[in-house]
Design a protein around this nucleic acid. Structure first.
Length: 152
DNA sequence: GCCAACGTTGGC
DNA sequence: GCCAACGTTGGC
Protein backbone atom coordinates (compact mmCIF):
# COMPACT_ATOMS: atom_id res chain seq x y z
CA UNK A 1 0.00 0.00 0.00
CA UNK A 2 1.17 3.48 -0.89
CA UNK A 3 0.57 6.83 0.75
CA UNK A 4 -0.03 10.12 -1.00
CA UNK A 5 -0.91 13.75 -0.58
CA UNK A 6 -3.22 15.47 -3.03
CA UNK A 7 -3.87 19.19 -3.14
CA UNK A 8 -7.04 20.96 -4.05
CA UNK A 9 -8.13 24.54 -3.76
CA UNK A 10 -11.20 24.46 -1.54
CA UNK A 11 -12.77 27.10 -3.78
CA UNK A 12 -12.73 24.57 -6.58
CA UNK A 13 -13.17 21.30 -4.69
CA UNK A 14 -13.01 20.91 -0.94
CA UNK A 15 -13.08 18.08 1.56
CA UNK A 16 -16.66 19.13 2.29
CA UNK A 17 -17.56 18.58 -1.34
CA UNK A 18 -16.00 15.14 -1.19
CA UNK A 19 -17.72 14.29 2.08
CA UNK A 20 -21.14 15.09 0.66
CA UNK A 21 -21.17 11.79 -1.17
CA UNK A 22 -19.14 9.55 1.12
CA UNK A 23 -20.18 6.34 -0.61
CA UNK A 24 -19.37 7.57 -4.09
CA UNK A 25 -16.19 7.64 -6.04
CA UNK A 26 -15.05 11.02 -7.15
CA UNK A 27 -12.87 11.41 -10.25
CA UNK A 28 -9.77 13.47 -9.46
CA UNK A 29 -9.83 15.19 -12.81
CA UNK A 30 -8.07 18.20 -14.25
CA UNK A 31 -4.50 17.31 -13.33
CA UNK A 32 -2.31 18.74 -16.07
CA UNK A 33 1.16 18.15 -14.76
CA UNK A 34 3.21 15.25 -16.02
CA UNK A 35 4.80 14.27 -12.76
CA UNK A 36 1.48 14.25 -10.97
CA UNK A 37 -0.06 12.35 -13.86
CA UNK A 38 2.65 9.72 -13.70
CA UNK A 39 2.00 9.09 -10.02
CA UNK A 40 -1.67 8.50 -10.75
CA UNK A 41 -1.15 6.56 -13.95
CA UNK A 42 1.73 4.35 -12.92
CA UNK A 43 1.80 4.00 -9.17
CA UNK A 44 -1.56 4.48 -7.53
CA UNK A 45 -3.38 1.38 -6.48
CA UNK A 46 -6.78 0.64 -5.09
CA UNK A 47 -6.75 1.17 -1.35
CA UNK A 48 -3.85 3.61 -1.25
CA UNK A 49 -4.35 6.19 1.50
CA UNK A 50 -4.32 9.88 0.66
CA UNK A 51 -4.10 13.08 2.62
CA UNK A 52 -6.50 15.70 1.29
CA UNK A 53 -4.71 19.05 1.36
CA UNK A 54 -6.35 22.45 1.00
CA UNK A 55 -4.14 24.86 -0.92
CA UNK A 56 -4.40 28.52 -1.80
CA UNK A 57 -6.69 29.34 1.08
CA UNK A 58 -6.75 30.96 4.48
CA UNK A 59 -5.19 28.03 6.33
CA UNK A 60 -3.44 25.70 3.93
CA UNK A 61 -3.04 22.22 5.35
CA UNK A 62 -4.22 18.65 5.64
CA UNK A 63 -7.95 18.45 6.24
CA UNK A 64 -8.89 14.86 5.62
CA UNK A 65 -8.18 11.38 4.41
CA UNK A 66 -9.36 9.66 1.30
CA UNK A 67 -8.67 6.45 -0.49
CA UNK A 68 -7.77 5.53 -4.05
CA UNK A 69 -10.80 3.71 -5.41
CA UNK A 70 -9.38 2.13 -8.55
CA UNK A 71 -6.66 2.07 -11.14
CA UNK A 72 -6.12 5.10 -13.35
CA UNK A 73 -7.88 5.75 -16.61
CA UNK A 74 -7.84 8.56 -19.19
CA UNK A 75 -9.22 11.87 -17.93
CA UNK A 76 -12.41 12.47 -19.93
CA UNK A 77 -12.38 16.21 -19.27
CA UNK A 78 -9.39 16.47 -21.60
CA UNK A 79 -11.62 15.33 -24.48
CA UNK A 80 -14.44 17.74 -23.75
CA UNK A 81 -14.18 21.07 -25.59
CA UNK A 82 -16.62 22.57 -23.09
CA UNK A 83 -14.41 21.69 -20.14
CA UNK A 84 -11.90 24.13 -18.76
CA UNK A 85 -9.51 21.19 -18.66
CA UNK A 86 -9.88 20.49 -22.38
CA UNK A 87 -6.63 19.62 -24.13
CA UNK A 88 -6.77 19.20 -27.89
CA UNK A 89 -3.59 17.17 -27.78
CA UNK A 90 -5.25 14.44 -25.76
CA UNK A 91 -7.50 12.01 -27.57
CA UNK A 92 -9.26 8.79 -26.56
CA UNK A 93 -6.93 7.00 -28.98
CA UNK A 94 -3.87 8.61 -27.45
CA UNK A 95 -4.79 9.99 -24.07
CA UNK A 96 -2.33 12.35 -22.48
CA UNK A 97 -3.96 12.85 -19.08
CA UNK A 98 -5.06 10.29 -16.54
CA UNK A 99 -6.92 10.30 -13.28
CA UNK A 100 -7.94 8.03 -10.45
CA UNK A 101 -11.21 7.86 -8.58
CA UNK A 102 -11.01 8.67 -4.90
CA UNK A 103 -13.34 7.96 -2.01
CA UNK A 104 -13.94 9.94 1.16
CA UNK A 105 -12.65 8.28 4.30
CA UNK A 106 -12.93 10.99 6.95
CA UNK A 107 -12.01 14.47 7.99
CA UNK A 108 -8.99 14.79 10.19
CA UNK A 109 -10.01 15.86 13.67
CA UNK A 110 -8.55 19.27 12.89
CA UNK A 111 -6.68 21.01 10.14
CA UNK A 112 -3.02 20.10 10.31
CA UNK A 113 -1.70 23.31 8.87
CA UNK A 114 1.27 23.80 6.63
CA UNK A 115 2.76 26.07 9.26
CA UNK A 116 2.52 23.29 11.84
CA UNK A 117 4.00 20.68 9.52
CA UNK A 118 6.97 22.97 8.98
CA UNK A 119 7.70 22.94 12.68
CA UNK A 120 8.56 19.26 12.64
CA UNK A 121 12.11 18.45 11.71
CA UNK A 122 11.05 14.87 11.10
CA UNK A 123 9.03 16.03 8.12
CA UNK A 124 11.59 18.30 6.55
CA UNK A 125 12.10 15.95 3.60
CA UNK A 126 8.45 15.85 2.66
CA UNK A 127 7.88 16.94 -0.91
CA UNK A 128 5.32 19.37 0.41
CA UNK A 129 7.86 21.24 2.47
CA UNK A 130 10.65 21.41 -0.05
CA UNK A 131 11.43 24.82 -1.39
CA UNK A 132 9.54 25.79 -4.48
CA UNK A 133 7.44 22.67 -4.44
CA UNK A 134 4.41 22.95 -6.65
CA UNK A 135 3.44 19.36 -7.15
CA UNK A 136 -0.26 18.81 -6.63
CA UNK A 137 0.13 15.07 -6.11
CA UNK A 138 3.04 13.61 -4.23
CA UNK A 139 4.06 10.45 -2.46
CA UNK A 140 4.25 10.35 1.32
CA UNK A 141 6.38 7.74 3.06
CA UNK A 142 4.81 5.41 5.58
CA UNK A 143 6.97 6.97 8.25
CA UNK A 144 5.73 10.46 7.36
CA UNK A 145 2.16 9.23 7.21
CA UNK A 146 2.33 7.62 10.64
CA UNK A 147 4.04 10.65 12.12
CA UNK A 148 1.39 13.01 10.84
CA UNK A 149 -1.38 10.73 12.05
CA UNK A 150 0.04 11.04 15.54
CA UNK A 151 -0.05 14.85 15.29
CA UNK A 152 -3.76 14.73 14.76
C1' DG B 1 -2.43 41.49 -4.59
C1' DC B 2 2.43 40.32 -4.74
C1' DC B 3 5.89 37.58 -6.23
C1' DA B 4 9.18 33.52 -6.15
C1' DA B 5 9.60 29.26 -8.15
C1' DC B 6 8.68 26.36 -11.47
C1' DG B 7 6.83 24.19 -15.98
C1' DT B 8 5.83 24.83 -20.80
C1' DT B 9 6.18 26.85 -25.28
C1' DG B 10 8.31 28.12 -29.31
C1' DG B 11 11.77 30.80 -32.00
C1' DC B 12 16.27 30.26 -33.36
C1' DG C 1 19.31 21.93 -27.68
C1' DC C 2 19.19 26.57 -25.70
C1' DC C 3 16.77 29.91 -23.46
C1' DA C 4 13.60 33.94 -23.17
C1' DA C 5 8.95 34.74 -22.56
C1' DC C 6 5.03 33.46 -20.63
C1' DG C 7 1.59 31.13 -17.63
C1' DT C 8 0.58 28.85 -13.30
C1' DT C 9 0.96 27.60 -8.50
C1' DG C 10 0.40 28.75 -4.05
C1' DG C 11 2.24 30.88 0.29
C1' DC C 12 2.07 35.06 2.42
Amino acid sequence: MNYWLMKSEPNAFSIEDLAQRPEQMEPWDGVRNYQARNFMRDQMQTGDQVFFYHSNCEVPGIVGIMEVAGRSYPDPTAFDPQSKYFDSKSSPQQPRWFLVDVKYVRHTRRTISLAELKEHEFLENMHLLRKGNRLSIMPVTKEQWDYIMRLE
